[in-house]
Design a protein around this nucleic acid. Structure first.
Lengths: 101, 101
DNA sequence: TTTGTTTATCGCCAATAGACGATATGGTTA
DNA sequence: TAACCATATCGTCTATTGGCGATAAACAAA
C-alpha cells in the first residue's frame, strides 16, 4: 500500500466504479441501502434499532456511504433524515451496467 | 472489527452482493476485468506488463478475483490463462441489476 | 539432471477498515 | 440557562488490505 505518491492513473470511470464498489463492499452497507430503498428515507436511529451494532458503528457506515455519494442527509431537527442520492445512484447504476455489458 | 463470533446474519443476496462489490472495490481489479473483457482471456504476464505493479501484487489481485468467483484460471503450461467466469459474472450482473432496481 | 520460464506464496511493513465506548456537538424544550 | 435528544466524532484496539522483494513450486526443454 505504498505508492502514495506517483499513484497509477486509471481512467476516470474505473476510479469511479471502484469507489462505488468499495462503498458497497460491506453487507451492512448493502443492507442499509436496501432499507433506504424500501423506506425511501429514514433516520439514523431507525437503523440503530434494525442492526445489532453500536450507534457509532452505524454512523460510521453512513458516513462512508455519504462520502461515496450514495446517500445524503437532511437535518430534521433533532434527527437527520437519510435518503438515497438519486443523482449519483443513477450514475452508479449505469457504471455497473456498462461494466457488466 | 470484532464480532468474529456471533456475526450478523444477513440475507444471502446481501452477503453475495457485498462480496462481489468488495472484489470490485479496487481500481486495479476493475482494470484487470476490463482487460479480460476486451481480450476475452490473458496470461498473468500480460497483466504484469500492462500495470506498473510487481508480479506478486498482480498475482494477489488475481487471487482475490478468483476467490470472489469473477475469474477462473486454466493451466496452459507453463502459463496460466485467466478468463472471466461467465457463470458467476451473470450472477453478479443480475445481483447488481436487481439492487439498483 | 539441470536450466529456464512462469506463476504462486511467504514474510514483512504501512495504511486502512471496522468495531466499540466515551465524549462532543447541535438543536429543542422545559 | 439547563437539561435532553439524536447524531457525529474521537481514541483505541484488532483484523485486513495492498504493496514489495525473495523464494517456492510446477513444468518444459535442453
Amino acid at each position: 500500500m505504498k505508492r502514495t505518491l506517483e499513484t497509477i492513473a486509471y481512467k476516470e470511470n474505473t476510479e469511479a466504479l471502484a469507489k462505488f464498489a468499495k462503498a458497497l463492499g460491506h453487507p451492512t452497507r448493502i443492507a442499509i441501502l436496501k432499507h433506504l430503498q424500501s423506506q425511501s428515507c429514514c433516520f439514523t436511529g431507525d437503523l440503530v434499532d434494525v442492526f445489532p451494532l453500536a450507534q457509532s458503528t452505524v454512523s460510521q457506515h453512513l458516513k462512508e456511504l455519504k462520502n461515496a455519494g450514495l446517500i445524503q442527509g437532511e437535518l430534521k431537527s433533532p434527527k437527520i433524515k437519510y435518503c438515497i442520492n438519486q443523482e449519483n445512484w443513477k450514475i452508479a447504476k449505469s457504471l455497473f451496467q456498462d461494466f457488466f455489458d
